[in-house]
Design a protein around this nucleic acid. Structure first.
Length: 610
DNA sequence: CCCCCCCC
């Protein structure tokens, strides 16, 4: 294999920052010497692995990263050790005192048997740190000018700030800004050029450690995304400067380790935005990448686990009203439910919150594109936006135009299948459905809950036996927490709330046998079920157990023989390597005999009874 | 320094 197949010398040129900019428009040919997977935090809700590669021009080699959108080249085996590639688009920066090449677009040319030449490592050129990153001694305003000059539109220069006009504009394709992917706490002087894909409302908090306000933004560039957070004074300084969808130069923010469990933004780090953080709009952003999607069909939601994150694009078939609600934490907010459909023939309910719920208007069944939307299992499957989800309405992307065409031509009049299971209608999941009452025999015969999905059913049954041991557990008294607490020397400790309480609040945990005229089953349930069965809070029952065991036993026995209407969920469960269907009680309704009698009269007067 | 993301 001849050495001259590769673009000799490109690695050493890329290693010297003064040459980098001239090379950015070239498409050098290199050999991949090694490919190594860099694992992201596996506990993150949306972990994204990356590939570190070493590229060689036959003379020297250079450390490099593949942008995540190129991962599939490695996953599909197209890029491996010794593959010859053309770098169609890349950036190159100092990262942790090393030159790091980030490959944004690549073409695979051929697979080679062995290493070409004897490439050597490169030294960091002297004085490199002083000139890189290239943005170190420039203000964002200076970038602004350079971008306008490098860009195509004359009008952008009219919007240049006075401060920027005096700066010497640079030739070529504009300044090299720092890639988001290269940001790390070891990096001091950097400027990113990034689009705001998400900006939260201003939120306030108040807890043991204090109180304040904050907001979050998500920044995205060609190499990746990063979440930014501003607190208190920084909120006042920066909130109005940032607008969703616009592109900004951002510098002088702090790079912190991200607590990945709290966000699905794919970055190990987060930006701490401070009041002196510099944010300048980049008005020439026409060529800047917009949100990158990885759409899945609505039909595919069936296979997605509850709480997983995905991107979908669909047509809005129905739009619910914006409704106010109060959360269990006492906060008032707005939600709006949409029904969306796609070409897979499925419809699914999608919940928008707060701002998105308020401002959404259905003008002619728009297409909605969502990134990072959460899958729920209510009534089969549903989608819900979360703080880091993004919503675009009628985005100018091919998938949107294709959907529009399909819907207007035929989709409009199609019938759609919902993920809601066939045994209960939408919303039937937690509502007692008298017209669809099933006997226990039917529940078992229809194998409810034996597939991967959850089934819901309503039944009327009589309590036959209650397991008296473990009837309640000590729970955290914090409203809405319900976590089990542990008796420690300083009180009852809640891991979740990170504090101790003098006394726990007991909550029921019920396992009981029920039966009707067709058969018997075990139902499981929690506090609401127990309170209905015992007509007293679990604290009281536990107190009775400690004081007078005979009375406790009597109370447990007294529950037997009572008949109730139940709404249950049937779900497959694996415990100790045994798989079985468990029936969870979602609702227990004491019989209202007047209502039951009215229903019987209705049945008797129906044509079927004559 | 937040980290709630609700409901039916």
């Amino acid at each position: 294999m001849p050495t001259n197949q590769l673009t000799a010398g490109v690695c050493s040129l890329l290693n010297e920052p003064q040459h980098t900019e001239d090379l950015l428009n070239s498409t050098p040919i290199v050999q991949i010497l090694s490919v190594k997977k860099v694992h992201s935090n596996p506990n993150a809700p949306n972990p994204v692995d990356r590939y570190r590669i070493i590229v060689s021009d036959g003379e020297h080699f250079l450390q490099s990263m593949l942008a995540t959108q190129l991962n599939h080249f490695v996953d599909e085996g197209k890029i491996q050790k010794n593959t010859i590639c053309r770098l169609d688009k890349f950036t190159c920066n100092m990262v942790q005192e090393k030159r790091l090449l980030i490959v944004l677009e690549i073409s695979v040319l051929e697979q080679c048997e062995e290493k070409i030449g004897s490439p050597a490592g490169l030294q960091i050129p002297p004085g490199d740190a002083a000139v890189t990153p290239s943005t170190a001694n420039q203000t964002p305003a200076a970038h602004h000018t350079a971008a306008a000059t490098g860009g195509a539109t004359a009008s952008t220069s009219n919007t240049t700030t006075p401060a920027a006009r005096g700066q010497g504009a640079r030739s070529g394709r504009g300044p090299t800004t720092f890639p988001i992917e290269g940001l790390s706490p070891y990096q001091n002087n950097w400027t990113i050029r990034a689009r705001v894909t998400n900006k939260s409302d201003i939120r306030t908090w108040s807890n043991q450690r204090g109180e304040g306000k904050l907001f979050n933004v998500t920044f995205m560039d060609e190499t990746g995304e990063i979440r930014g957070t501003a607190f208190n004074l920084a909120v006042d300084a920066l909130y109005d400067k940032l607008e969703e969808g616009k592109v900004y130069y951002v510098s002088k923010a702090k790079v912190n380790l991200a607590k990945k469990q709290f966000s699905n933004v794919a970055n190990e780090y987060e930006l701490g935005l401070e009041k002196n953080t510099e944010i300048e709009e980049c008005r020439d952003s026409s060529s800047f990448p917009v949100v990158r999607y990885n759409f899945i069909d609505l039909a595919k939601l069936q296979e997605m686990a509850k709480d997983s994150i995905c991107d979908v694009i669909a047509v809005v078939k129905e739009t619910g009203d914006a409704t106010e609600f109060t959360s269990k934490f006492g906060r008032t907010s707005t939600k709006r439910e949409l029904t969306v459909v796609d070409r897979s023939g499925y419809s699914v309910r999608l919940t928008l919150w707060a701002k998105n719920a308020e401002k959404f208007t259905n003008t002619d069944s728009p297409v909605v594109a969502l990134k990072g939307v959460k899958v729920g299992d209510f009534g089969g499957r549903n989608l819900s936006m979360s703080s880091s989800s993004t919503l675009e309405i009628n985005p100018d992307i091919p998938e949107c135009h294709a959907l529009r065409g399909w819907f207007d031509a035929s989709g409009n009049s199609e019938n759609f299948q919902s993920h809601t299971n066939s045994f209960s209608g939408a919303g039937g999941a937690a509502t007692f459905n008298r017209s669809e009452l099933m006997s226990i025999e039917e529940v078992k015969a229809k194998d409810l809950g034996t597939s991967d999905k959850t089934d819901f059913f309503s039944t009327r049954a009589t309590v036959m036996h209650l397991k008296a041991d473990n009837i309640a557990y000590p729970a955290c008294p914090t409203q809405g927490c319900n976590k089990k607490v542990f008796d420690q020397h300083d009180g009852w400790r809640c891991e979740k709330c990170d504090r101790s309480f003098e006394k726990p609040e007991y909550r029921y945990i019920i396992s009981m046998a029920v039966s009707d005229h067709t058969g018997q089953a075990w139902f499981q349930g929690f506090n609401e079920l127990g309170e209905t069965l015992f007509q007293r809070p679990a604290n009281d029952l536990v107190a009775i157990r400690e004081r007078d065991e005979a009375k406790f036993n009597k109370l447990v026995e007294d529950v037997n023989g009572h008949q109730f209407n139940f709404t249950c969920r049937a779900k497959q469960d694996t415990y100790n390597e045994t798989t079985r269907v468990r029936y969870g009680v979602q609702k227990i309704l004491p019989l209202d005999y007047a209502e039951e009698a009215r229903h019987l009269i209705e049945l008797l007067s129906s044509p079927w009874a004559q």
